[in-house]
Design a protein around this nucleic acid. Sequence first.
DNA 1: GCGGAATAGATGATGCGTCATGTACGTTGA
DNA 2: TCAACGTACATGACGCATCATCTATTCCGC
Lengths: 177, 177
Amino acid sequence: MDGPSSPIAPSGRADAGVGTPWLDADEQRAWRAYVRMQGLLAARLNRELQLESGLSLADYDVLVQLTDTPEARLRPFELQHELQWEQSRLSHHLARMRRRGLVEREECSEDGRGAFVVLTEKGRQAITAAAPGHVGVVRRFFFDGLTREEVAMLERLTTRILDRLSDADAETQGDVG
Amino acid sequence: MDGPSSPIAPSGRADAGVGTPWLDADEQRAWRAYVRMQGLLAARLNRELQLESGLSLADYDVLVQLTDTPEARLRPFELQHELQWEQSRLSHHLARMRRRGLVEREECSEDGRGAFVVLTEKGRQAITAAAPGHVGVVRRFFFDGLTREEVAMLERLTTRILDRLSDADAETQGDVG
DNA sequence: GCGGAATAGATGATGCGTCATGTACGTTGA
DNA sequence: TCAACGTACATGACGCATCATCTATTCCGC
């Protein structure tokens, strides 16, 4: 739970000649601010959530996905797709959550390899108890500081970056040029 | 290296009555996009940096701070202030970097408790080799997707959130409020 | 049907981040 | 001058994330 790098280039490099892709002064400042913001924000959200409910952000995300599903159960690979997590991260995390009684494992008759992750009553109570506080923290630290135009722009902007990241993944996978 | 939570509220809660601080639909979308973006971006930056140079983002940040200083050495608490890291995280991380030969420890004559963290030649070579590629990745995935206005707005916006986070810290510390 | 590939998921090793706690040194004030 | 307090830093335990690797099953072409 930390974040991308801060000052980006060593020894005050900024706006160097063509060929080297350094950032200019505006970009440097923006990058530093972004990086620091996301690091502190994530740390704060994690800490508050942990203190108030004993859940980590990762737990929270998994539980939300499960409650958003009719039967409160999902195949791990579906969960993986929703959360965009690495497979082994999910596997390890589900194992830990199972140990804590937040979810259960259920065999899958249709596919002998697979399984279902099922929300337990304890899991449901945990997410129900945690959600209002967590949303409140997000609102207090994030949205209360932004105008509606900024929120809209933020969505456009982050979505665009997201597309670039996905495109790069697709290229690496599918061997397109 | 992951990120804040994704869908924020369980079971499609959005725009509920007053009292409960749920997010409305716009905020939900913006939050989801932001969270996913920062998670994937951080993962990507970390992975590329690791592959190309064997450094983590955390290593990179420490090394940049050191190279930005005249004597390439800093007191841990200075580093801590620059990076905004928890003290024990820094301590652990410096220990690991020392084991790998990226930094050295030097006793501090002025303050018997303290020490200096000194950049080694190996550390300098590592950061020098890593920087262009890393900056390139940041540019490719992030800044190339943004207009200058967006960069400017992003800086304003993140700086504002940052202030809110700092204010909250100050309140918790100094018992104001 | 069978052999090879793809898919679903688990696991061990290792580095990282946080919390709680410990230790040593400095500072301050009665 | 010395006790109380604050500061600088280290450490152990533990949960988390990633990488490499492993197993079991299904799919697909022949």
